[in-house]
């Protein structure tokens, strides 16, 4: 079964602008890690935001885990889509500790389950010793791990990552790429990763595509 199914998706920032995404289609199977490569301004971040529900397409449809989330006549709010996202700057809540950040997406669950999920996530990203820290007390790489754990904790159908390495030092990148691949594999997570760096895709992804992809250029 396809976890993500995008059909003929188009988007432009205003009515009169050239579409930044033009009749784009993509299917992703369970467990695939898709890398989307392209220069800045090619609409790759916008594609993630459309899947997440943070933008509304001008036409086309998106289906996630068999459920239609947007088309020309309906729109499902981002919080109801079962999509996780790691933002480029991580956007960890500055007024919450690591623990509270990760538990933030687990609010619907019983107390015990939340606790055990938290421990599981901390272990997955190897951050057990940092639960009481605040985001500004962590290094860039540690922040990224917390952001990843926070996005994975509610067990989304698909994980979106927007330039996850752009805020890290070059000498750290190799190691963290390797870790990320392991984490995603362990969690058996269907993912879409957007980047401008071919190396990211080569190290992590099972499948890649280039943007801008428009129906015209294909």
């Amino acid at each position: 079964m396809n976890i993500v199914d995008i059909q003929e998706l188009s988007f432009s920032f205003s009515r009169n602008d050239e579409p930044i995404i033009d009749r784009f289609s993509l299917s992703i199977k369970k467990g695939e890690v898709v890398g989307i490569l392209g220069p800045s301004g090619s609409g790759k971040s916008t594609l993630l935001r459309l899947i997440a529900g943070l933008e509304m397409p001008s036409s086309g449809s998106i289906t996630i885990a068999g459920r239609r989330v947007v088309d020309d006549r309906m729109f499902i709010q981002p919080e109801d889509r079962g999509v996780g996202m790691v933002f480029q700057d991580y956007a960890l809540f500055p007024h919450m500790t690591v623990k509270d950040n990760i538990m933030f997406g687990l609010s619907g669950l019983p107390r015990d389950k939340r606790k055990s999920d938290l421990e599981e996530m901390l272990e997955l990203v190897q951050m057990q010793d940092y639960k009481k820290r605040y985001p500004h007390e962590l290094s860039g790489g540690q922040q990224q791990r917390v952001a990843l754990a926070r996005a994975l904790a509610p067990r989304p159908n698909v994980l979106l990552m927007d330039e996850p390495f752009s805020n890290l030092d070059t000498d750290l990148k190799d190691e963290i790429r390797h870790d990320l691949r392991e984490i995603l594999q362990k969690a058996d997570m269907t993912s879409i990763l957007v980047t401008h760096d071919q190396k990211d895709v080569a190290a992590i992804c099972t499948k890649q595509m280039m943007v801008p992809v428009t129906s015209r250029s294909m």
Binding site: E79, V83, A91, G105
Partner: peptide, 13 residues
């Protein structure tokens, strides 16, 4: 907007 967007991606209205 980023904190708001993260929160909504984590299932909060």
């Amino acid at each position: 907007n980023r904190y708001t967007e993260s929160s909504r991606m984590l299932g909060h209205g």
